[in-house]
Amino acid sequence: MDRAALERHIKATPVEGSPADMRAAFLRLAHPSGVPDLPEVTAVGGCPGRWFGQGGRPILWLHGGGYVFGGSASHAAPARALADQTGRPVFVPDYPLGPDHPWPAQREAGQDVVRALGVCDVVGDSAGGHLALVLAPRMAGHVGRLAVLSPNTDRTGLSTTRRRNSGSDLMNDDAQDRVLGDMALSALPDDDPEASPLLADMTRMPPLFISTTTTEVLLDDALLLATRAARSGIAVTLDVQPDLFHMWHLWPDALPEARRTLAAVAGHLVAPARNCPT
């Protein structure tokens, strides 16, 4: 599948309806040729999920999907690609989803997984990037390196591209992002750092890799995060790709840009880790 065919698939597979409908649609969206064979579901820290690859120190991938859909099945392709590129196992947990499980269920499940893994490196995309940014400073002794792809960081209005890029992002728009966020985060005011990790104290963040694209809704979420982290003295690598769409990394088999992004994440994660437990 080339990019044109993938874009037709995205347009023909709207993620809408009930939460159950959205979960089924997003799984179809992530796998244009059908869901591949998947590893068996196992549990880490009481949270079900799937392992991809094997080898050394594990990588935790916190999946996106607005805290309403997504999981280890939808993120199989990028998780496998990252495992291949790093030579390390990647665990994707199926953490609790809203609206049945509102915040802080996601944070608590993530903390339990990190404790069980003793994991040193974390990847998060979209809402999973939000979760990773909340978890990393809380688990500072366990997270050596962090990579966030199209992270959701600001619900206060500082991010101007949420509206400006709503017409150019095939995978996201401001209205849908707000609806999904409210299903899990509605109990939090927008300026709470757990709702908008952009506002959190960045000084306990590990070395940070951020990837975004110029035409996605969450461009400013990433750019503002990079600025705040750098001003807090955190080592930051910012990767800005032109003319893509939110969560392009889901399709490494179709998009060379996705493969390059995951290779950049792998390069960040294989550098010597900081503050890893022994």
Rank of each mutant, 00 (worst) to 15 (best):
I210Q: 00
R155P: 01
S126H: 06
A79T: 09
G181Y: 06
A81D: 03
E216T: 05
H31R: 05
A229L: 04
A230K: 15
P32S: 06
A271E: 15
R88A: 12
L135P: 02
L170F: 07
G55Y: 02
P36K: 15
V92K: 04
R138P: 01
D100L: 13
M22I: 04
V41K: 10
G118H: 09
Q111N: 03
R115L: 15
V179M: 13
V119K: 05
D37T: 14
Q85M: 13
L149P: 03
P14S: 13
P89D: 10
S74I: 08
A235Q: 15
P48A: 02
N152R: 12
G34D: 07
A30W: 02
G46S: 04
T261P: 00
Q111R: 15
M205T: 09
G110L: 03
H9D: 06
R163A: 14
A258R: 02
G17W: 01
G87E: 10
D169W: 02
L238E: 07
A76R: 01
M205A: 14
R274Q: 15
L131T: 14
D221I: 01
T160F: 05
D177A: 15
G45L: 11
D191K: 05
G124W: 05
G49R: 04
H249K: 00
P277N: 09
M1I: 06
V148G: 07
M1F: 12
D37Q: 14
A43W: 02
F245A: 12
A83M: 08
R162D: 03
M205D: 00
H31Q: 06
T156L: 09
A230T: 12
R259P: 00
P256T: 08
V119I: 10
I234A: 04
I10K: 02
W251M: 03
I10E: 05
G53E: 05
G141K: 13
L199H: 04
P102D: 03
D182F: 03
M1T: 05
V270I: 15
L97V: 11
D201G: 08
H249W: 07
S72R: 00
R274C: 12
R155E: 06
D201P: 09
N172R: 01
V41H: 06
V240E: 15
L82P: 00
F245R: 03
A127H: 04
D121I: 01
N275M: 07
A229T: 02
H142E: 15
A136I: 09
T278E: 13
V179S: 09
T13N: 11
A264R: 11
D253L: 12
G118K: 04
L198C: 06
L146T: 14
H268D: 10
T227R: 15
A235H: 14
E216C: 06
P137G: 02
V270Q: 14
D94A: 01
D201I: 09
G98L: 13
E16T: 14
A83Q: 04
V44A: 06
G124V: 03
A140T: 12
L188D: 09
A226W: 00
S196Q: 09
R80M: 11
P206E: 10
E216D: 05
K11C: 03
V41S: 06
A184E: 07
P19G: 10
V123T: 00
G17R: 01
M139K: 07
Q241N: 11
G181C: 12
A127K: 02
R274M: 09
L133Q: 06
G45K: 03
L238C: 09
T203C: 02
R162T: 00
R23G: 05
R231E: 13
